[in-house]
Design a protein around this nucleic acid. Structure first.
Lengths: 225, 225
DNA sequence: CATATTTGACTGTAAAGTCAGTCAATTCTA
DNA sequence: TAGAATTGACTGACTTTACAGTCAAATATG
């Protein structure tokens, strides 16, 4: 029923290694990835419980049974999709954390930009939406996502705020205790996009810039129609 | 499978009108409400698609067929739950909007308080979570919720910010264009509660207070352990 | 007792996951 | 290098499970 058009897959498409005639294993791996991609589309369109794996198989140009060669069952598919999509993000977070000290504002900008280029304009936005919408029923996934993504992100944000306050770049509010306030709008955007963007789209670039202004207590004049 | 303990039902429980021997119609209406309440619990626990209406019936102390006396089908149940829960909130929003001009801060506090007393400590938190998690698959519901709740809330918030800026209570940022930024943490809390509170609970009172500080650019000292 | 209400066994549908068989790719061998 | 032998990736019909929604029968009510 539902028909979600996924956009570009996760950003860096690895260069195809010439025309080497694909050996079986390689071909198989390629199909496995196709199944994961289509699985994401189907889960996103119909929801975890309502999605039909048969459907996914067909759309991936593969027979039903093929799916079970790589995956134990529907839940396993879900987990592989989430893990596969989030692992690169985790690495990136790590890398940002190791960056030489940046001004609060700059780090924030960098993080938001990362979010835009690696999540919003990527199939990952659907993965995150899935985690948010289906995670309640999958404690395993929720736990994984909290441990590997959310808590690291929060730590990074907290560090940034604390440091910014010490440098007098940020007003000393309780914000340092609630880095949640920094990412809440990002999460909201992901949800909004699925729910309401048809009725009232959001200009995410401007929203994030307004958000930065607000966070930093910057009275910089806004420019808007 | 899932077993969610719903808390108190929507806040004001109307006083039982003495011991008037319940007439049939009244009894029927009472059961209808029980079915809605249990329906909410079951949808919340298992998700819309996976929930078993039979289950709901049993838990409501009623036979399966009984459900279909009031409801066309599973989707109808979902819609009735959402509409029934949100209508009172809409009225309250209306009432707040008509309030004599309050200081920006005060109105914000009032709204957050409304959210806490009418949503967070109420079964409505589950309704909202359902809208957020399942709404993607129910354009009808998403549309209803956007039209009746979200857009009104946003208008109210926007008005408040604009007025606050005019009165020099709020720094003139783009915040006025993105009232979304004001409610994002509320939505996040509802989601967080379902997903991550087991690993890392949030003190919502403090979070909202920090949020107010941040929004108003108030450098008021924070107090935290 | 007539009627309104409720029940729960039943029917039909639908999809999940299995597995015996097929066949293309690969390896072996003369 | 051709042709035979082997492998194992892939298929899809089949079995099973399970629940939605119906409706004839049973029960409660006034």
């Amino acid at each position: 029923m539902g028909n979600i058009q996924l956009g570009s897959p996760f950003v860096p498409i690895r260069p195809v290694p010439a025309k080497t005639p694909l050996r079986r294993q390689e071909a198989s791996e390629e199909r496995r990835e196709a199944i994961l991609a289509v699985g994401l589309a189907v889960f996103s369109a119909d929801g975890f419980a309502a999605a039909k794996l048969d459907d996914a198989a067909t759309k991936a140009g593969v027979a039903k049974g093929r799916i079970y060669l790589h995956l134990k069952d529907r839940q396993d598919l879900f987990e592989q999709i989430v893990r596969g999509a989030m692992e690169p993000i985790i690495e990136q977070l790590e890398r940002v954390a190791e960056l030489p000290d940046l001004p609060t504002d700059a780090l924030l900008a960098k993080l938001f930009e990362l979010f835009q280029s690696q999540v919003l304009t990527t199939d990952r936005r659907f993965v995150i939406r899935l985690v948010l919408t289906e995670g309640v029923h999958f404690p395993e996934i929720a736990s994984f996502y909290h441990r590997e993504v959310v808590s690291r992100g929060l730590a990074l944000l907290k560090m940034n705020t604390t440091r910014g306050t010490a440098r007098d770049e940020v007003a000393p509010t309780d914000l340092a205790y609630f880095p949640h306030l920094v990412f809440a709008p990002l999460a909201m955007d992901v949800m909004w996009d699925g729910l309401f963007s048809a009725f009232e789209p959001i200009d995410i670039g401007r929203l994030l810039s307004a958000h930065r202004q607000t966070l930093l207590g910057n009275a910089g004049r806004g420019s808007n129609a």
